[in-house]
């Protein structure tokens, strides 16, 4: 069953001579429980695409539906994890995770239980009372994931959430996301420019073209689950990676020649 459908979505920034077409005729179907990853060269509009799905930006054309309902504006049914650290620094880990639940009007006891569950799920049990300033970058993103999931969203949207982390931490976070997803099976739309990350995580990798961004193709990742860092050395991994790399390489080269 299709969870998220984008049909002919386009977006242009600015007007007149300064107008820049960021997205052009984006068509995308993401199935229920799918872990979908979009990769594309930098500046291809992939973050814009995610922001449109999140309702933080409006498309100029096309239709976006989730569960067959049009998306209008941001909402708790689509949790977002941003690349920048977005924990509320004046709230503790626990209070951060409870933020959305409090807005929904869930009572304190239930809130606490739900928050505990997700804090433990991301491996931060014991840090409930800590303030964000005491956490490392990786830990902050774990809390951000817990905070988004605690809201029980229909979809989780992730905009290069591990982009600011060092290589070691990134790998740990990727494994953590895989294990969380195995348990929760929330539909995820994940954006990255890191091909390894895309292949390790995705059911399907959607490769975007250079600007104006289009979905060039969908590549199924046949690596069996559950996956972990060892999956990255399998022959299937290399094959898929090579395919994506060649496609992106072509895009970047054409983009460079056009400049």
């Amino acid at each position: 069953m299709n969870k998220l459908v984008l049909n002919g979505v386009g977006k242009t920034f600015g007007t007149g001579g300064k107008a820049v077409e960021a997205l052009s005729d984006i068509n995308l179907c993401i199935a229920e429980n799918e872990l979908a990853v979009i990769v594309g060269p930098s500046g291809c509009g992939k973050s814009t695409l995610l922001n449109i799905v999140a309702g933080l930006e409006q498309a100029d054309s096309g239709v976006i539906t989730m569960n067959n309902r049009n998306i209008e504006g941001p909402g708790a049914d689509r949790g977002v994890v941003f690349q920048s650290y977005t924990l509320f620094p004046w709230l503790t880990v626990q209070q951060n995770v409870e933020f959305g639940l409090k807005i929904k009007g869930i009572n304190a006891k239930e809130r606490q239980e739900i928050a505990r569950h997700y804090i433990n799920l991301v491996g931060l049990g014991g840090f409930e009372g800590a303030l964000p300033k005491a956490l490392s970058g990786g830990m902050k993103q774990r809390v951000a994931i817990a905070r988004a999931l605690a809201n029980k969203p229909e979809m989780l949207l992730m905009d290069e959430p591990f982009g600011a982390l060092d290589a070691q931490t990134r790998l740990i976070m990727q494994e953590l996301l895989l294990s969380v997803w195995e348990k929760e099976r929330t539909t995820i739309l994940f954006i990255t420019h890191d091909i390894d990350e895309a292949v390790l995580l995705a059911d399907n990798v959607y490769v975007m073209s250079r600007r104006p961004g289009r979905i060039r193709c969908r590549i199924q990742v046949p690596i069996p689950r559950p996956r972990d860092h060892r999956s990255t050395v399998s022959p299937e991994f290399s094959a898929v990676k090579k395919e994506i790399m060649e496609m992106l390489w072509e895009e970047s080269r054409t983009a460079a020649n056009e400049r």
């Binding site: 909402g75 977002v80 941003f82 977005t86 509320f88 004046w90």
Partner: peptide, 27 residues
């Protein structure tokens, strides 16, 4: 105030006024 903080609050279901009161003011 970091714009992503406000956006994060919006995606967690906060209304305009809630964003103002719960995020913009403390931040």
């Amino acid at each position: 105030v970091q714009r992503d903080l406000l956006r994060a609050a919006a995606t967690l279901g906060a209304s305009r006024w809630q964003i103002y009161r719960l995020v913009l003011m403390p931040a």
